[in-house]
Design a protein around this nucleic acid. Structure first.
Length: 125
DNA sequence: CAGTTGACAGTCC
DNA sequence: GGGACTGCCAACT
C-alpha cells in the first residue's frame, strides 16, 4: 500500500469551547472523557490512547488524570493501559468489576496476577 | 506566566 | 521478550 510517508499528521483541532468562564472546572476535556468511558459497554474495555484518540488528542496521560479525579463517577475499570493491564494499585478493585461483567481475563505472572484480553474485548467505536 | 505532575503510548535498544 | 527514553496534552502549584 502506499507508504504514505506524510509525517505531518494534523490531527488536531480540539473542539472550540465557547465557555470562557469555566464555573467549576473546565468540563470540556473532562466531560468528553467521561462521555467516552460511559459509552464503553460492559464486558469491553478501551485503552487510554483509544479514549484520547476519540477525543481527537493523543493525551493518554491527560485521560488518566481525569479518571483519577473524576473517574469515581464512571466505569474507570473499563479504561486500561496498552497491553491490557489495569492501573497500578487498582488491579484488585478492577478485577472485581471484570469478573462481574464477564470481561475475558487471562492469567499472568505479573504482580497483578491477571491481564485483560484486549484481543477479545477491546471496545471499538 | 512558567514549571511540574500524571490511573500513558509508542518506539528504540 | 523486556527495559529505557521520548512525546503529548491538560490540570495543578
Amino acid at each position: 500500500m502506499s507508504p504514505a510517508p506524510e509525517g505531518q499528521d494534523r490531527p488536531l483541532r480540539r473542539q472550540p469551547q465557547a465557555n470562557t468562564t469555566p464555573p467549576p472546572a473546565q468540563a470540556g476535556f473532562v466531560d468528553a472523557v467521561l462521555a467516552v468511558v460511559g459509552d464503553i459497554p460492559a464486558g469491553c474495555v478501551a485503552t487510554y490512547g483509544d479514549v484520547a484518540a476519540l477525543l481527537g488528542s493523543r493525551a493518554a496521560r491527560a485521560v488518566g488524570q481525569v479518571m483519577a479525579r473524576y473517574g469515581s463517577d464512571v466505569a474507570w475499570w473499563r479504561v486500561v493501559r496498552a497491553g491490557g493491564r489495569p492501573p497500578p494499585g487498582y488491579a484488585e478493585r478492577a478485577r472485581e468489576h471484570y469478573e462481574a461483567e464477564g470481561t475475558p481475563l487471562r492469567p499472568s505472572s505479573d504482580a497483578d496476577g491477571y491481564r485483560i484480553d484486549l484481543a477479545s474485548c477491546r471496545w471499538r467505536p
